[in-house]
């Protein structure tokens, strides 16, 4: 059992950057470009890991250095609970909450580390990151509520897969959006926004710290994909593996096409949108409450 979980984690570690490479390729094709090879993200990471990090002199050093590690571990821990390639995982009551908590923790620590760098851009970026997190949290809470209502549980063991119902479709659709938002893609890449605040929180990070942070971003996206797919896929191993891989590819293509053909929102626009979305989520939650 535990051995299989390790396989899952290894799978994620290896394939998360590959999927990013794949998305880059898809985006390139949508922009009439050749695009880099799908291994490019891996090469980038390897290169970054080899570089010595530079620590800005007016940062709060301990926090600044610790943040990438905590972020990375938080995301990795979530993989113990969310199954990827194989359906096995460590499950207990309330693990759904724990996963959400871990993901938020990763984002918060990441922002905190960036904030401690002392760079105004990083501080702005962290500010934006947190505001965006807060605004999406409400929707997320509703989504959790909906899903929990459907499965009458907060444990993945029971929740996976969801039964076919109106409320589950609505819940998953909302989850689809929330995943998009929290994986910081255009139009919601406001915290990073290269032309505005120069990669915001990442601006001062370098070398292996940067690599760790980027790695955690890829892992986080991959985790959210897996989470989503788990809600759909049946538990029998044979169909599941194939379906899982196929689902990942489909999700990647859909997400990256959306990303390639959107402009960036301003923070206030994004927050307004999230508010509207929470209203929708509330309705969906009520539907779930009715048991439809």
């Amino acid at each position: 059992m535990n051995f299989l979980v390790v396989i899952n984690i290894l799978f994620a570690l290896i394939f998360a950057p590959l999927f990013d490479g794949f998305e880059r390729k898809v985006k390139a094709r949508l922009q009439n470009r050749q695009g880099p090879s799908i291994f490019q993200t891996w090469w980038d990471l390897i290169k970054l890991f080899k570089r010595p990090p530079v620590i800005p002199s007016d940062s709060i050093k301990r926090l600044y250095i610790l943040a990438p590690y905590i972020t990375f571990t938080a995301v990795l821990t979530a993989y113990l609970i969310v199954p990827t390639l194989l359906p096995q995982s460590l499950n207990f009551a309330g693990d759904f909450i724990l996963v959400i908590y871990l993901i938020s923790l990763a984002t918060l620590i990441f922002s905190l580390g960036a904030f401690s760098s002392g760079n105004p851009y990083a501080q702005l970026g962290s500010n934006r990151e947190v505001s965006l997190l807060m605004s999406e949290e409400l929707v997320l809470a509703f989504v959790v509520g909906i899903l929990a209502l459907i499965g009458r549980s907060l444990s993945f063991e029971i929740l996976f897969p969801l039964p076919l119902k109106v409320s589950s479709i609505l819940g998953l659709a909302l989850l689809f959006v929330v995943i998009y938002v929290s994986s910081a893609r255009i139009p919601f890449d406001i915290p990073e926004a290269e032309p505005e605040i120069i990669e915001g929180p990442l601006i001062e990070y370098s070398g292996k710290h940067l690599a760790l942070l980027e790695y955690s971003i890829y892992l986080k996206r991959f985790l959210l994909y897996s989470l989503f797919l788990n809600f759909i896929l049946p538990k029998e191993t044979t169909i599941r593996t194939g379906g899982f891989l196929l689902g990942l590819i489909v999700l990647s293509i859909v997400y990256s096409s959306l990303e390639a053909y959107y402009g960036r929102f301003r923070l206030d626009q994004a927050i307004k949108l999230m508010k509207k979305l929470s209203a929708v989520a509330l309705v969906a939650w009520l539907i779930a409450l009715m048991g439809w």
Partner: peptide, 17 residues
């Protein structure tokens, strides 16, 4: 606008030399 731009780019294909 978005969709026709996407279809446009798919129909043109790669233009990088």
């Amino acid at each position: 606008g978005r969709l026709s731009l996407i279809s446009k780019s798919i129909s043109i294909g790669k233009v990088t030399e």
